[in-house]
Design a binder for these strands. Structure first.
Lengths: 249, 249
DNA sequence: CGCGAATTTGAGTATGTTCAAACATTGTGG
DNA sequence: CCACAATGTTTGAACATACTCAAATTCGCG
């Protein structure tokens, strides 16, 4: 059995062997030959927090897979107000197919590793492998579901419900041991208070006050400003306003 | 040339001949044979305002194209708070592929005509025609862009900016003569004040007050509560908060 | 005409913002 | 090693925007 696996994996490019993108991401749609072709023109990058990956109204020449870390997608108004419209985790595909120009800006929220490839390379693959387009469609629909879930949060929830919903969403996406039945969770916040407020349509002061309140009520515990320990996922979910936040990616 | 066109169109099912879905919707992806196959199992419906098309948490057995009218997609919290998360206009595709259960509820906002076909029929077509999946992906990405645009509106705009943005969006989608250079626009509101408030994350009182204000300032004119005439699209856009709302579908 | 529903208008209030200051935490240079 | 910025976070007090509740008004329709 180990032998067979070795033979089988011998066709897989070294770069891709241990990559999540092959299991859950779009690369799983590619046969070894196409994967090799794509791998030849792709490269890994390590990106520091705060670095802008794609500027607003900027031409986009490459796509990427997120291999680790968190990328925030933001839109801003001309007077500086900002809204985070999406978070991307591994192994999400990053980019907007079929558009020359991005209306969104993407920025590394944490240290991020990406696997990038030229726009043209992916678009050639799409023409050859229908399964690839199928995966892109699936991710787009998942992101659409997530965006709509957050529209409810932005439009109809109170500040305290917003913060609780945000924490539950993070727990589901970051602390992989958390499923619907989990009692406690533990993770590092990938966003600053200011980022969180841009995600929830609040001010950083309000976010801070709500976190303080959750801490005072014993629902969460915060260490070093960044590390969150959710003592009771159930009690946190009760504060989300009556609809369970779904997984983001 | 007329002859050739006749020969060509003779393969097109009667039901589909004058349908927008063939030009701009997903049906444009199908060759005459497949179109005929789909047409055989599809049917047109006329639906009255307020009728629920797809219930929340309900199994979905069919998909549709919107042929006319406006469909609102809503999500609600358990205590009754509601948020409209999307509006669909002709010739949008209505439905969520690859999910057995909907987490969204769809309701006719105006009189709506639909062309419906069984879930299985579409899914068979998708396997056979990659171009169909391509169109679905394109629509999903457009809806995702629209959803994110509205996240900015929900999270970061004031009540008056929200209402202005909403009116501009409607003008672009309903009054087809309106493009980016149009001076004035005119259309019937497809939504009640309560619906508009569910769309913008406001109360109906606030929506009403903002409309009154726009009217008092001479930017719009309202007849019979429902018909809106935008005197100056430019002045309305100035009130949107610095980013032009994009086309919805 | 008169009923019911949707809309408008008003007054008081609450939630979240704004502005300001105090308080960590981290990294830098003396 | 410590002083000291620089940045991010917390806390406080005053304020504003949009909400709530209530009543008046308009519109559509039998």
């Amino acid at each position: 059995m180990t032998l067979r696996q070795d033979i089988h994996s011998s066709g897989i490019p070294v770069l891709c062997r241990s990559c999540e993108g092959r299991r859950r991401g779009i690369c799983g749609a590619l046969d070894p030959d196409r994967l090799a072709a794509l791998a030849r023109s792709s490269s890994r990058h390590k990106i520091e927090p705060g670095v802008e990956l794609v500027g607003d109204c900027e031409a986009v020449n490459s796509y990427s897979n997120v291999l680790s870390g968190v990328v925030k997608l933001t839109k801003s108004l001309s007077d500086g107000r900002q809204q985070i419209v999406g978070l991307q985790f591994a192994p999400d595909f990053l980019g907007r197919p079929f558009k020359v120009e991005s209306e969104i800006s993407a920025e590394a929220a944490t240290v991020v590793t990406l696997c990038s490839f030229p726009k043209a390379a992916l678009e050639r693959m799409v023409k050859e492998s229908p399964e690839l387009e199928h995966r892109l469609l699936k991710q787009a629909l998942d992101e659409l579901d997530a965006a709509r879930e957050w529209m409810v949060t932005l439009g109809r929830k109170t500040a305290s419900e917003k913060v609780a919903s945000f924490l539950v969403m993070l727990a589901l996406n970051i602390d992989t041991s958390v499923d619907s039945a989990a009692i406690s969770a533990s993770f590092d916040l990938p966003l600053t208070r200011a980022d969180i407020s841009d995600f929830l349509g609040l001010t950083n002061e309000t976010v801070s006050r709500q976190l303080t309140r959750l801490r005072a009520e014993g629902v969460i515990r915060i260490e070093n400003k960044r590390h969150v320990r959710v003592e009771s996922v159930g009690r946190l979910e009760q504060r989300c306003g009556g609809r369970r936040p779904r997984q983001f990616g």
